[in-house]
């Protein structure tokens, strides 16, 4: 597969690593991708966090919901517990699920930390990490990477940014 076939990817595979394309894929449209990155830049140097919800079973992240980082910290994030309840009630009412759970790292790479791994409790979600260590609040390079985190095991997946969801075939579900 070439880069032009799969769209923009989060990063380049380095020999010796688990091949990026060997397992899952996150397909996300440009608007949602841009909104996640913009949120991460805006909240730098604190960690930004949120979800991109989508119809249950669709694996399609459609509705970005930026969340307040109750910790307001450069090294920790936590959804405010009251907002968390409202978010899940809202998703339930819309028959949605958290397709993407995202947060930023502001001084380190976009890879799950030990804290991220031990606290990950949505095995069906794509955990997206954005690193703003290079760009800060400004335009500039960001890392945007996606992972599955299931029972402490981290699996990186390809990130495919598409102009819109309509044109491409739905991706097979992994979490069902």
């Amino acid at each position: 597969m070439t880069v032009s076939e799969c769209g923009r990817i989060g990063r380049v595979w380095v020999p010796g690593e688990t091949p990026l394309y060997s397992r899952g894929v996150l397909t996300i449209d440009q608007a949602a991708y841009d909104a996640v990155v913009a949120h991460a830049r805006r909240d730098h140097p604190d960690e930004a966090c949120g979800v991109v919800a989508g119809p249950a079973g669709s694996d399609r992240p459609e509705r970005i919901v930026p969340m307040l980082n109750a910790a307001r910290s450069p090294t920790f994030y936590e959804f405010d517990p009251t907002d968390l309840l409202r978010l899940y009630q809202d998703m339930d009412a819309r028959d949605e699920e958290p397709v993407v759970i995202y947060h930023s790292h502001t001084a380190t790479e976009a890879y799950p930390s030990r804290t991220d791994i031990s606290l990950a409790q949505e095995p069906g979600a794509h955990y997206v990490l954005v690193s703003t260590r290079e760009c800060g609040n400004d335009e500039g390079p960001v890392e945007f990477r996606s992972f599955r985190i299931v029972e402490g095991e981290v699996t990186e997946e390809e990130v495919r940014v598409v102009p819109a969801y309509g044109a491409s075939k739905p991706q097979p579900m992994e979490q069902q």
Partner: peptide, 12 residues
Amino acid sequence: VVILPAVAGGEA
């Protein structure tokens, strides 16, 4: 009664 795991983490 609603049970929800926290959504939390971070580089620390």
